[in-house]
């Protein structure tokens, strides 16, 4: 959904009244949560492409989170998760990610919806 808060780009002088909390909510540092880079093979015959990153304590959970986050619209893909620390990079070079939704739960797809023929812009 939308998040671009054009109206909020200027820093207000004081905290907004909407803050609610009088004191800081304790936050737990994400210890033990490594950063992982995620690579997905969308279809047989294609190579793995970098699609983004996520946090997870170990490879098993990283794979599961990658599945939840990056393949909601595709099954039968291959996922690689690599600890970000294991990536050696030239300077500066990162591959373009490749987003290709494949079909799964069809109500996720715009084409699933029956819209009146005369409507435009959707």
């Amino acid at each position: 959904m939308n998040g671009v808060t054009r109206e909020g780009l200027e820093q207000p002088a004081g905290a907004a009244k909407s803050a609610g909390a009088a004191s800081t909510v304790p936050t737990v540092a994400r210890e033990g949560l490594d950063l992982w880079e995620v690579f997905v093979r969308a279809r047989r015959g294609l190579s793995h492409q970098h699609v983004g990153s996520l946090h997870a304590p170990d490879a098993e959970i990283a794979l599961r989170r990658a599945r939840d986050l990056y393949t909601r619209r595709g099954e039968g893909v291959s996922i690689w998760v690599v600890p970000a620390s294991a990536v050696s990079a030239s300077d500066p070079g990162e591959k373009e990610p490749y987003f290709t939704p494949a079909r799964d739960k069809d109500y996720r797809y715009p084409t699933y919806y029956e819209l009146p023929k005369e409507v435009r812009g959707l």
Binding site: H55, A56, R65, D68, R72, K105
Partner: peptide, 16 residues
């Protein structure tokens, strides 16, 4: 947030 996504995923499977 990761659990939001995971729980919704399970709920959707069960609903299906």
């Amino acid at each position: 947030l990761e659990e939001e996504v995971a729980l919704a995923n399970i709920a959707l499977d069960q609903l299906g």
